[in-house]
C-alpha cells in the first residue's frame, strides 16, 4: 500500500486522536504550570451609617474584582512554576508526617491517600479477576451444551451493566439495613454498618470490580479453552499427569498470552478506577486518583474550578500509568526489533 493511500485511510482517525488526545495532553502540561486568577483591585471607600447629629463615616479598603468593558471579571494568567504540583503533593505535610514518624497520617493528604487506594485496588483485584475468570471459563466449558448459552448470558450481565449503576446496585444491598447487612447481622449477632468505615467500603469496591470484570476474563479464557490441543492433553494423560498437573502444565501455558492480555487491560482500566467512588459514594473515606482530578474540575460552592491543580494531578496520574506501562512497552520494542 502506498503511503498516500495509507494516509488517506488512517488520516481522519489520526486527526481526531491528535486534536482530542495529544493536543489536550500538551495543554494540560501548560496549564499545570500556569494559574488563571481574577484580577482584584484594592479601593478605599467611605462608608457612612446614619447617626445624630452627623452621619458616622469610616474609610475602609475593600478588594473587588476588576471588570472589563463588557462588564465581565478580568482574569490574568501567570506562570507559577511548580506551585500547583506542590499544592497537590503537599510536601510540607508530607515532611511533617515523615519526620514525626506517623506514616499513617500521610494518607490523610488527598493525593497520597488516592495513590495508595488506586495502587492497592489495582494490585489486589488483578489476580482475583484472572483467577475467578479462569474458574468460570473452566466450569462453563465443563457443563453440558444446553446450559452453556444461559450461563454465558447471565455471566455477561455484570460486564455490560453501566458501572455507576452496577456499583449502586451492590451498594443498595448493603446500605443501612439492606438485606445482606441484615443477613450478616443475624449471623454474627453484631450491629454492622458497611458504610461507616473505610476498609469495608474498600472491600465492597474491590468485590464490585471483580464482579464487573471477571466476565470479560471469562469470555476470553473460554474462547482460549476451545483451542486447547487435545493431542497434548491426551499424551499428558498417558504420561500419568493428574487433573491438576494437566491444568498447570498444559492448559495454563496455552492460555498464557491471554492471561497477559487480560492483565494488561485490567491494569489500564483499574488504574483509572472512578465509577466506584461515585456509585459507593465513598469520597469521605476512599478516593482514587481519577476522582481527585474530577473533584478539582467540578465547580466549588463559588463556581470556580481549580483547573491548575486538576492539571497537576492529571500529570502526576499520567506519570503513574507510564511507569506501569514501561515494562510492557520495552518488551514490545524488543519483539519488534527482533522480528
Amino acid at each position: 500500500m502506498k503511503f498516500r493511500t495509507f494516509a488517506a485511510f488512517v488520516g481522519p482517525s489520526l486527526l481526531l486522536m491528535m486534536i482530542f488526545i495529544a493536543a489536550p495532553l500538551v495543554s494540560v502540561l501548560w496549564q499545570s504550570f500556569h494559574l488563571t486568577q481574577n484580577v482584584f483591585e484594592t479601593v478605599e471607600t467611605e462608608r457612612c451609617t446614619p447617626g445624630f447629629p452627623n452621619a458616622v463615616c469610616e474609610t475602609i479598603t475593600v478588594d473587588r474584582p476588576v471588570l472589563d468593558e463588557n462588564g465581565e471579571i478580568q482574569t490574568v494568567t501567570s506562570f507559577v512554576g511548580w506551585q500547583s504540583y506542590s499544592r497537590v503533593l503537599d510536601p510540607d505535610a508530607l515532611g511533617a508526617a515523615i519526620s514525626s514518624g506517623d506514616w499513617w497520617s500521610i494518607l490523610n493528604i488527598d493525593f497520597w491517600g488516592a495513590l495508595r487506594f488506586t495502587l492497592t485496588f489495582t494490585l489486589v483485584t488483578l489476580p482475583l479477576v484472572i483467577g475467578v475468570g479462569l474458574l468460570i471459563a473452566i466450569t462453563v466449558n465443563n457443563a453440558v451444551k444446553t446450559i452453556r448459552g444461559p450461563a454465558i448470558f447471565i455471566s455477561l450481565l455484570p460486564f455490560i451493566i453501566t458501572p455507576v449503576i452496577g456499583a449502586l446496585s451492590i451498594r443498595w444491598l448493603f446500605v443501612g439495613d439492606g438485606i445482606l447487612t441484615a443477613l450478616m447481622e443475624s449471623w454474627s449477632g453484631q450491629d454492622i454498618a458497611m458504610f461507616a468505615q473505610g476498609w469495608t467500603i474498600e472491600l465492597l469496591m474491590m468485590f464490585y470490580r471483580v464482579w464487573h470484570v471477571a466476565p470479560f476474563a471469562f469470555v476470553i479464557f473460554y474462547a482460549g479453552l476451545q483451542t486447547v490441543n487435545m493431542d497434548t492433553l491426551e499424551s499428558a494423560i498417558i504420561d500419568g499427569a493428574s487433573r491438576f498437573e494437566r491444568l498447570r502444565y498444559v492448559i495454563v501455558p496455552h492460555l498464557m498470552p491471554l492471561i497477559v492480555f487480560i492483565a494488561l487491560i485490567h491494569l489500564m482500566d483499574s488504574y483509572r478506577v472512578f465509577e466506584e467512588v461515585i456509585g459507593f459514594r465513598s469520597e469521605a473515606h476512599r478516593i482514587s486518583l481519577q476522582w481527585l482530578t474530577f473533584d478539582y474540575l467540578t465547580p466549588d460552592d463559588s463556581g470556580n474550578r481549580s483547573v491548575s491543580r486538576a492539571s497537576a494531578s492529571s500529570m502526576l496520574t499520567m506519570v503513574g500509568i507510564v511507569i506501569l506501562l514501561v515494562p510492557l512497552l520495552r518488551r514490545t520494542w524488543r519483539d519488534h526489533k527482533g522480528s
Binding site: P24, S27, Y271, R272, V307
Partner: peptide, 23 residues
C-alpha cells in the same frame, strides 16, 4: 501508530477532560 494508540488507550479520561474543559 498502533503502539501510540495503545498508550492513548491507557490514559485516564480525566486527564483528557482537564485539557478540554477550559478550552
Amino acid at each position: 501508530l498502533l503502539i501510540m494508540a495503545l498508550i492513548f488507550r491507557a490514559l485516564p479520561h480525566s486527564v483528557l477532560v482537564t485539557g478540554y474543559l477550559p478550552a
